[in-house]
Design a protein around this nucleic acid. Structure first.
Lengths: 340, 340
DNA sequence: TTGTACGCGTTATCAA
DNA sequence: TTGATAACGCGTACAA
């Protein structure tokens, strides 16, 4: 059994209150006694019990990370893995612990329930990563637990968010293809496509087309299942064989589309150019290396955590910030002028 | 402010003890009163405070996940992502929360410090995933916090572990190459290579070679940095241009080796066959699809969590179990007979 | 069946 | 500067 503050007090013949003050660097303890207490604490390997402390201070020094996606899908996506890593780094540096939970579709959380660790007051604040059901956002607001949303910005909600400029990014990518001379350009989607980042990227694709005077065609847009880029690309090529370029909602789906093209005997970029989004490590390892938008995913995670800590310090009363990260076009070998 | 058990008691005119019994399904409450209490609790949205409960029960209904690697490296590896997902699923189904921390090289944890959430009694048990410093294992044993190690088995320690049969797997892979007729086979390593899974895979590679009467050559083995498969493959090919096959310590490094081969104008599998380990999703998406060992990583995570819960139930006194998962050879298009 | 009261390990507010 | 003691919110023996 680990030593408690009481053991420490008894072994030194002083009061527990004094121990507490000494170890928490509060005034009101003689320098000599303080020395003795600190030494004895190290000797007994005393560590304050988190629950007891949390009970009285109402702070847990813990923050929660809530994924909008199913856990496996979340972690398999290098983008989210980077955000997670950034959050973890910032959290660790501030001496806070990190809890994880997922509010995926089918889970009770998606019905507007708040994660266990929130209702039980075991986290000081929450980082919501990725598209979550709107119910969840509502429940969170009711819970009065400070939170910041990363990579998602529900329309018409005034929240603290950290997002990428998705629409602009997709427009830049599509413009790149248009400038190369492409006219028949498909969009390989992801799930969900009706909201969140992929939706915004679809919007950017559409904007770029319309600016170029090219009609938006529903049948050139496909994708609902997570990591279903291969299937989506297949469907697009069936619907319109003249397609010479594909904009994918992210790198993972872009690389999956490579497979579909290979299966049809089409080569990248000679027959079809492909662009992705996120610049995941694999984008550089495949052949041909993928043209994509680079996003500072670790930085986004860090920034979101920083904002959350700021809210915690300021008492959750500050007006919401919307922080936008810009993505940067990285041209590689997966894009070229269309054939002939 | 969230309602406490006291609020609930007062609003019903009964005692807090009765409330506690009613809500925890303990005997000693009349069915009628119990009904009223349950209804009122729902009405006030009462949830017991985790700290207060943890303080008295000495259980937190939380388990910790400790990564042996740096967080980014950990999450970027689909193998570990799968283990994480399995752990999360099992944990969630048992109504426990999950905390995450990393005991990477440079962190104070690696010097034998135990994670904050362990010393503060905020987790009931711990899952250690991947190769950790031996100091950490020692500290954990001293802490008397029940734990299970996944994908790592320190030599000469009698621990609860869940691992893959790495040596056998690498032998199977190498035998596959030998049967195809390869004689000059390199090994693309990873970090760490002196212990843990990659070390065991190296052993299996070595065993297979020696069984086939082929001398083990130090210069055909390279790799220390994480995800340094490209660089390692380069060095091996420089050291011995006659190499016709590469065994990689995992799929991620195998795919990185593809890049090195492309850079030298070598084609897979015509010039050089490549095999990986883990069967990550990308192994199927690249060209050519990778011959590899399939590992049930989600199952390993689940199993480890199950074992941990079993230990918690049985009071940590049971003798350690070593659970070994077998990997399965998946032959795809990245392997063929050597040229000529 | 219900109520009382103690204790879990801290921090914080008083007195001394 | 130090000590005593009351919270914090809950579970649980024990008494009624």
């Amino acid at each position: 059994m680990r030593a408690t503050i009481k053991d420490l007090a008894e072994s030194l013949g002083v009061n527990v209150g004094t121990i507490s003050r000494a170890l928490n660097d509060k005034p009101g303890v003689g320098p000599e006694l303080r020395k003795r207490i600190v030494r004895k604490a190290a000797e007994l390997d005393y560590r304050p019990n988190g629950h007891a402390r949390g009970l009285v201070t109402q702070r847990t020094e813990t923050i929660g990370l809530l994924s909008g996606l199913d856990t496996h899908a979340f972690l398999s996506n290098p983008f989210y893995a980077g955000v997670f890593a950034g959050i973890e780094a910032e959290t660790r540096e501030r001496n806070h612990a990190l809890m994880f939970a997922s509010a995926a579709q089918k889970s009770p959380l998606s019905l507007g329930e708040v994660p266990k660790f929130v209702v039980e007051n075991r986290v000081d604040g929450l980082l919501v990563v990725g598209p979550v059901e709107v119910n969840v956002i509502g429940a969170l607001q009711d819970s009065r637990c400070p939170f910041v949303v990363v990579d998602y910005h529900p329309a018409a909600e005034d929240l603290d968010t950290v997002v990428t400029n998705n629409t602009r990014g997709a427009r830049v990518l599509t413009d790149h293809l248009l400038q190369l001379g492409h006219r028949h350009i498909g969009f390989v989607g992801g799930a969900p496509l009706d909201r969140g980042s992929y939706h915004e990227r679809l919007l950017g694709y559409r904007e770029a087309l319309e600016n170029a005077g090219i009609a938006y065609r529903q049948e050139l847009v496909h994708g609902a299942a997570p990591a279903g880029g291969c299937e989506s690309a297949m469907k697009i090529l069936e619907a319109e064989p003249r397609v010479t370029a594909l904009v994918a909602c992210n790198d993972v789906n872009a690389l999956a589309a490579y497979g579909a093209l290979r299966a049809r005997g089409l080569s990248v970029p000679k027959d079809v150019s492909v662009v992705g989004f996120d610049d995941v490590p694999a984008a550089l390892e495949v052949w041909p290396p993928l043209t994509t938008m680079r996003v500072d995913r670790v930085g986004m995670g860090r920034k979101a955590a920083q904002r959350l800590f700021q809210k915690l310090a300021e008492g959750n009363a500050t007006s919401p910030h919307q922080i936008v990260f810009s993505a940067e076009l990285v041209v590689r070998a997966s894009t070229a002028a269309p054939r002939k």
